[in-house]
Each structure stands twice: as C-alpha cells, then as structure tokens.
C-alpha cells in the first residue's frame, strides 16, 4: 500500500478555521459549494463537530471545479466576500444548505439574509479580488493530492474512507486518541 498524501500547505493565518486553535484534531475539507457530494457531507461534518466539540478544529478550503460547476467559483467568491465582513461560516453553511441555489441573484439574497453590506458584497463579487486566494486554495489541494470533492485531511493526512458520519467520526476519534 502506498502512503497517503499529506497536506502541503499547513493550516495557518490565511485559513478559515472554526474550533479552538489548540484542538488535538484538525479536520480540513477541500470543497465546492456546487458539488452535491460536498452538500451531502456538510451535515455529517456538522455532526462530527457537535460530537467532538472543542477537541476538533475544522478548516475549509475552496476547490471549485469551475468547468463542471458553473456557479462554484462565484459561490467561493461569495464566501470570501462574506468573510471580509466577518461572516465566512454563516455564508459557508448557507451555501451548502441552499441545495444549489447559487445563481448571482441567489448569492445576493444570501448576503441580504445574513445582514451583510450588500453594496460592498456585490461590488467585491463582481471584482476579481478573491480569485487569487481561491486559486491558491485550489492549487494547494492539487499539490496535496486532492482528486475530487470533497477531500478531507485528518491532522494533515488525506482521509480516503467513505464520507458518512460514522466513518468520519471514527477517523477523527482515532486521531484524537493518537494525539
């Protein structure tokens, strides 16, 4: 058996992180808001977070497959534009729960619902200011062995198990016990 790929870009200041910085387990996802498998994985991730509590920190990086998901790039930009207003995670959750409602009009509606400064949000979405960051996320995933979405890393090692609550939770618990 070949060894599993490892994360090449360590988690740091640049990342979107929820959970304590000193948590023994880091679960990192490369995801695409328009990917149905990522949408399906979102509730499992949330449940893992709930059950493992402050023993876990969760990190999300963008991996939009823009040629097959026409709204994925704009959705990633919307999350970054929300982040600029301190609302990355509310937007992240909303985009995954929106069941594919990701047209430009939908994105603006999400910003309105979250109480963001909509004028600034729309302006930033139309500009290219987040493209480089999203591409950096994407290429860091490519270099780390991401080959589809979602791809998870548990404490920096690619998780190759199935994407369901039981399997993800077992991997996280195992990493906590090994820590």
């Amino acid at each position: 058996m070949t060894s599993r790929p490892r994360l090449v870009l360590p988690v740091g200041e640049r990342d979107h992180i929820r959970g304590p910085a000193d948590a023994p387990v880091t679960l990192l996802e490369y995801g695409d808001f328009e990917c149905p498998f990522c949408q399906a994985a979102h509730p499992a991730v949330e449940e893992v977070r709930r059950r493992v509590g402050d023993q876990l920190r969760f990190v999300y990086r963008h991996f939009p497959l823009a040629n097959v998901h026409p709204h994925a790039e704009a959705a990633a930009k919307a999350a970054e534009a929300a982040s600029a207003q301190g609302s990355f995670w509310p937007m992240h959750d909303r985009l995954f729960e929106a069941q594919g409602a990701l047209t430009d009009e939908d994105l603006v509606a999400h910003a309105v619902a979250l109480g963001l400064d909509v004028e600034r949000f729309v302006r930033e979405l139309a500009s290219g200011i987040y493209a480089a960051r999203i591409r950096e996320d994407f290429m860091s995933g490519v270099r780390s062995g991401v080959n589809g979405t979602p791809t998870f890393y548990v404490n920096g090692v690619r998780y190759d198990g199935s994407i369901d609550l039981g399997s993800l939770l077992a991997a996280v618990v195992e990493a906590r016990e090994a820590a």
């Binding site: 695409d32 498998f37 497959l65 040629n67 097959v68 979405t149």
Partner: peptide
C-alpha cells in the same frame, strides 16, 4: 463529475 480526473486536469 466531482471526482473526474479529466475535469480536474482542465482546471
């Protein structure tokens, strides 16, 4: 689609 090698290579 989401695990498609050829789509990934396009990106």
């Amino acid at each position: 689609v989401c695990g498609d090698q050829m789509s990934l290579y396009q990106m």
